[in-house]
């Protein structure tokens, strides 16, 4: 399984920035061989360059879909067309670069399969991000999908896990109306959705509290509804104990988002032209990882050098 390193964009810029990083690392290596500590600001500078350079001169890599991600993709594929799926936007602007690409990919996938989608948020800050997905994905790419027939926006409700605790058995108690104050009883697509346990799938996108874990504890387990998580990479490890029984699949971080985007394009070539932030961000991501690994190595060299020097004294 050899993966080709596909280098695109301004090659000269790529070469220059890589040379800059490599040169700096060699300089640091020489310094550290003398047992000198690196100042914090130097580290900060390296991170800045490693992230900025690939944004200015893009590098992209090909992504292979991993089983935990594929499980989510296959679940959405296997639901009969017309199933009702919920996507919950439980994140804030700060987390958005990482998880919003997942929410967007989920939305595209559900609509491409002809599912009906319930959008909601249990984070106060998730509401405006939800609106942005509605504007940039739903209304722009799927103008034929009608609000309240093919999708509905329930908006935000305060109360954290309390909200989940209620909607699992009674949606209307918490959400008498959708975000535009239209009573749920007059919304055709929700006629049979009395509670969240009536849904075919819940895609919990988020990473803090409340997040996918609370969806599992308060909705998935008691309501026996399949739940898939789109999580920030930092929370993904804690979700592994719930996989595969309580969570059908997990997307963790931008790498999983990139994998999902690759899978989407493989299956639905019409999405090749849309923005794929996951794949786009993997370049800077990879370079930043390399830089951090360099620093771990340098840190250890400094450590062993100074230990030797101390023992010689």
């Amino acid at each position: 399984m050899t993966e080709a390193l596909v280098v695109t964009g301004t090659n000269l810029g790529v070469v220059i920035s890589l040379a800059l990083i490599a040169g700096g690392v060699i300089w640091l290596l020489v310094r550290s061989l003398k047992g000198k500590e690196v100042e914090r600001r130097v580290i900060f500078g390296f991170v800045l360059i490693a992230v900025s350079a690939p944004i200015l001169f893009p590098i992209t890599f090909h992504e292979q879909i991993s089983p935990v991600v594929k499980a989510v993709f296959d679940k959405i594929e296997s639901l009969p067309a017309g199933s009702t799926v919920a996507i919950s936007f439980d994140f804030d602007p700060a987390m958005a670069p990482e998880v919003q690409p997942m929410a967007n990919a989920f939305t595209r996938h559900c609509f491409a399969k002809g599912h009906k989608v319930v959008f909601l948020s249990i984070w106060a800050t998730g509401q405006s991000l939800l609106t942005s997905t509605l504007d940039t994905v739903v209304r722009r790419e799927f103008p034929e999908k009608r609000e309240r027939i093919d999708w509905v926006n329930l908006g935000y409700k305060a109360g954290n896990q309390g909200v989940l605790n209620v909607i699992v058995s009674d949606l209307r108690k918490m959400y008498p109306t959708d975000v535009n104050a239209v009573p749920l009883d007059s919304i055709p697509m929700l006629a049979e959705v009395k509670a969240f346990r009536d849904l075919s799938l819940i895609l919990a996108v988020g990473g803090g509290f409340p997040g996918p874990k609370e969806w599992v504890l308060y909705v998935g387990d008691p309501g026996n509804v399949p739940i898939a998580a789109g999580a920030a990479a930092v929370t993904a490890p804690q979700l592994y104990p719930y996989y595969p029984r309580q969570l059908i699949g997990i997307l963790g971080g931008i790498k999983s988002a990139a994998e999902y985007e690759s899978a989407m394009v493989d299956k639905y070539p019409q999405f090749d032209s849309v923005d794929k932030p996951g794949l786009r961000m993997m370049g800077p991501q990879t370079l930043a990882h390399m830089v951090i690994m360099m620093f771990i190595i340098i840190g250890n060299i400094v450590f062993f050098r100074s230990k030797r020097m101390r023992s010689q004294l």
């Binding site: 991170v47 992230v51 900025s52 944004i55 200015l56 893009p58 700060a94 987390m95 958005a96 670069p97 990482e98 990473g207 920030a232 990479a233 930092v234 993904a236 490890p237 963790g252 971080g253 931008i254 790498k255 961000m281 800077p284 991501q285 930043a288 990882h289 951090i292």
Partner: peptide
């Protein structure tokens, strides 16, 4: 393992901000 896994997540946030500075603000890309 959790720490290593998290590095990824944290980088994405910075990439998001740098993306804002370079493309939305400075319009370099």
């Amino acid at each position: 393992a959790s720490f290593g896994y998290t590095v990824m997540s944290r980088m994405s946030l910075l990439i998001g901000r740098m993306d804002f500075l370079f493309s939305d603000w400075l319009k370099l890309i």
